[in-house]
Amino acid sequence: MKGFYTIALLILSNTFMTLAWYGHLKFAEWKWFSKLGLFAIILISWGIALFEYIFQVPANKMGYNGNGGPFSLLQLKVIQEVITLVVFAVFTLLFFKTETFRVNHIIAFVLLVAAVYFMFKK
């Protein structure tokens, strides 16, 4: 069950991270937001990123086998990276209609899944 909660928290964390890192590119379409300076956008992104850490820190603490969780530190990192790329891909396709997936993107995702497989192989 700790593994499930760890992954769920990492998905939430990465959703906020993606929004903090790339959301401002989409938010710029809003009239009031487009008038903000860079410093204001950084502060807004930091506010959003706070929620990333609210979910990410407990996920790693709970999931790490040194704390009784099911994953090694290396496994946690690979899981996090795959989640990051999946969340980013979904975000991009939903919010940035100009982006498209090509064959090389699909191949890259397959290789990431292979990385997870080899990370967990005993």
Rank of each mutant, 00 (worst) to 15 (best):
Y22W: 13
Y22I: 13
Y22C: 03
G23H: 07
G23C: 15
L25M: 15
F27Y: 15
A28E: 12
A28W: 13
E29T: 10
K31L: 10
K31C: 12
K31E: 13
F33M: 10
F33R: 04
F33L: 10
S34R: 04
K35G: 05
K35A: 09
L36D: 08
G37T: 04
L38Q: 11
L38S: 09
F39D: 08
F39S: 10
F39V: 11
A40C: 05
A40M: 10
A40T: 06
A40S: 14
A40P: 05
I42R: 03
L43R: 13
I44R: 01
W46R: 11
W46P: 00
W46N: 11
W46S: 09
G47D: 10
I48P: 00
E52I: 02
Y53R: 14
I54V: 14
Q56V: 02
V57H: 06
V57Y: 03
V57I: 15
A59D: 02
A59R: 02
A59L: 05
N60F: 06
N60I: 04
N60W: 11
K61Q: 03
G63T: 03
G63R: 01
Y64K: 07
Y64C: 07
Y64A: 07
N65S: 08
N65P: 00
G66F: 10
G68S: 01
G69Y: 06
F71C: 02
L73W: 10
L73N: 12
L74M: 06
Q75K: 07
L76G: 06
L76C: 06
K77C: 12
V78D: 04
V78P: 11
I79H: 01
E81F: 04
V82S: 06
V82C: 10
V82P: 00
T84I: 06
V87L: 01
F88S: 04
F88D: 03
A89I: 09
A89W: 05
V90N: 00
V90C: 02
V90W: 01
T92C: 06
T92V: 14
T92P: 02
L93K: 12
L93H: 04
F96Q: 08
F96A: 12
T100M: 12
T100A: 08
F101K: 00
F101S: 07
R102D: 10
